[in-house]
Design a protein around this nucleic acid. Sequence first.
RNA 1: GCUCCUAUCGUCUAGCCUGGUCUAGGACGCCAGGUUCUCAUCCUGGUAACCCGGGUUCGAAUCCCGGUAGGAGCGCCA
Length: 469
Amino acid sequence: MPIRVRIAPSPTGLFHVGTARTALFNYLFAKKFGGAFIVRIEDTDQERSSIEYESVIFEALAWLGFTPDEGPNEGGNFGPYRQSERNERGIYKKELEKLLHSDGELHAFICTHPAAGDENTLLHHCDQLDAREYKHGGIIRLHVPDLKEPIIVQDKVRGQVQFLMSDVGDFSIAKDLDTPLYNFAATVDDHAMQITDVIRGEDHLANTPKQMLLNRTLGYTDPNFYHLPLLLGPDRSKLSKRHGATSVAEFKAAGYLPEALVNYLALLGWNPGTEQEIFSPAELMAAFSIEKVHKSGAIFDRSKLDWLNGEYIRQMPVGELTARLLPFLKNLPLGAVSQEKLEAIVALEQPRLKKLSEIGERVRFYFEPPRVAFDLLQWKGMTEDEVISSLEASIEILNNLLSQKKDQRTDIERALLNAAAKMGDRGKLLWPLRAALSGAPASPGPFDIVELLGIPESIERLRRVKNGI
RNA sequence: GCUCCUAUCGUCUAGCCUGGUCUAGGACGCCAGGUUCUCAUCCUGGUAACCCGGGUUCGAAUCCCGGUAGGAGCGCCA
């Protein structure tokens, strides 16, 4: 039987990184076994679901590179892939009626208990077991006998986990014939879509016995279950908004590369058993095995993500990096900069970038003269006169180069370095030069900057700074 | 409160199944040094952990029991 897995997000909010990791593990598992990765939209709660949030899901999936094999946009033989549409076709109603008319120990019934309020932590053990005919004013529950009989979840990550029927209670499966609820709709769909392996977050572990009970009642076979450890915030509680950025869109906007995020997410709760940490998507597929997934939660640590992101940035061909950087350069006075020059600038910044979003302010000085404060120009407590003569020396060297038409990077470096060496401390020449050109305490080296700016523009900047002192 | 899950450096983890090779390995972070005008990159070194208590055993991070701590779930949300 072919492997079929699914992610079942509800379009009620942003796409969380935890969901992204669940999607990743499902995706890898499917690809590893040549199976199908399915997206099913769980929008039975019409109040909270929206079409905008649905597109957030698709955008996140596309950005991360997890292309669904079946889903609302891709189609497939098991559609529709939105629960709202499935509901319109009466898919749930049909199964619900089966449960309502079942004579078995497990069967659905109408519960007329009032909506849960403060008592919502109590288990429902209703005694209205004969009220099987649907009538308004009640909610439909599955009757679970109050027995000490265990329901054993064979979890492929955590092993055997036992629940008692008496601890499950009569749980809700639909508000009425036309309004199915999560556990019921998911169970019906997983069966209808022939899902073989359910890989999801640990927070669903307690739902599993309910779904197994539903499978048993409806005559379905259970899929394999895998419950992934949770993603945690620094305080070790489930990662949520209060821990900062948690949505995929936020990471994208913050300048993270999808391949770095994916790589990082893969390493949370899983590792290949080797010392490899950087994986291309293909390597990840090859190395992934769900047996090596952990049981314990993992803290989402930004500093390691940042490091990985930097690694990916450094490994990327300059042309590609430049293209990816474009959205983050929007607010800069780029003018009519050539692609070649832009790539040269990007190449200089490449080893310094941790996030794409950092590019903006780092490269602004290439496009417009910076403001330079005097004390920035001082190397090791140089006096005003020393700074001025240092700048003059640089200007003279550059003028010479200009008149000799030597404007190659090697020419620039040789001339400047020679002069700097004669001063004993190279910093006496090089620091004021670099500071005057960049206006920054940290930047690429002066030879690179001069080459990029061009000698005339460099001289111009140096003069202006010198005169401003 | 009830149910369930988990437990190795600050963090992600290897090792645990199949006890000895573990004076517990790697990575991130941090610290120091090298390269260097600066920053980053790069290189070198350092820092730091088997939750606690019993037991089994010649020997336990590894097996067993009991604690403790943390987490998740307990909706007419998903």
